[in-house]
């Protein structure tokens, strides 16, 4: 293994090891180091946002300068991104201009995208809920009972519908969710061990 790979692995293993032991032992100096490490992480998190902006500028700046296909979209992205950054830094996020951009440009655009989901869901559920087998029938039945159970109309049809809908959410749903949570947690521990032991090296690439 080359030095370029070995040094990051040693740094990762050392810091993760100190934080891991510090969290479980409560040993003073290690806990103090944990505090410093956490502050570093918050700072790195802030810097990462800036790094994202640099990356976007490189990719879309190149597309714009070389007049690649649909270059005007890249130009629009850069103008909007830098315009918002400059206004946010020069004034503040509570300034009237920044507020206006957020309330009357950003919010309507993002909410419109999500609102379209109502129509996509109508179309997708129409296709997904084709009852071609017993399993599909059970899926449709369960979905209907949960939807009706959480609306006023379900109670009007039969008072038992909300009870059955709640049972589906409380028993099969929770059972499935717990299984997924446990599996994901065990997977997380395995990945943590692979990273600090230097077995997982995918994050060094790129």
């Amino acid at each position: 293994m080359g030095t370029r790979r070995l040094i990051p692995i040693i740094i990762t293993a050392t810091i993760a090891g100190i934080i891991f032991v510090g969290a479980f032992s409560g040993f003073g100096p290690l806990v103090m180091f944990m505090g410093v490490g956490m502050k570093w992480m918050v700072i790195i998190g802030g810097v990462a946002a800036g790094l994202g902006a640099v990356n976007l500028t490189q990719i879309h700046g190149r597309d714009f300068l070389r007049r690649r296909k649909e270059w005007w979209n890249s130009l629009a992205l850069l103008v909007v991104m830098f315009g918002t950054i400059v206004i946010g830094i020069a004034f503040s996020p509570t300034h009237v201009i920044y507020r206006w951009l957020f309330d009357w440009v950003f919010t309507p655009l993002t909410t419109t995208m999500v609102s379209l989901l109502a129509f996509f869901i109508a179309s997708a559920s129409f296709r997904a809920f084709r009852i071609r087998s017993l399993e599909a029938g059970v899926l449709v039945g369960a979905a209907f009972l949960v939807i009706l159970g959480r609306s006023a109309i379900g109670t009007e049809i039969w008072s038992g519908i909300p009870v059955i809908g709640a049972w589906i959410m409380d028993v099969p749903n929770v059972g499935g969710s717990r299984g997924i949570l446990l599996g994901a947690s065990l997977g997380g521990i395995a990945v943590f061990l692979r990273v600090i032991l230097g077995i997982e090296r995918g994050h060094f690439v790129g």
Binding site: A118, I121, A122, S125, F126, F129, R130, I131, V140, F144, I147, L148, S151, A152, I153
Partner: peptide
């Protein structure tokens, strides 16, 4: 609005089937 919208979608699914 959401309740009636959901019932409408359900009715369409049943009709489609």
């Amino acid at each position: 609005a959401q309740s009636v919208g959901q019932v409408l979608v359900m009715a369409l699914i049943i009709a489609g089937n």
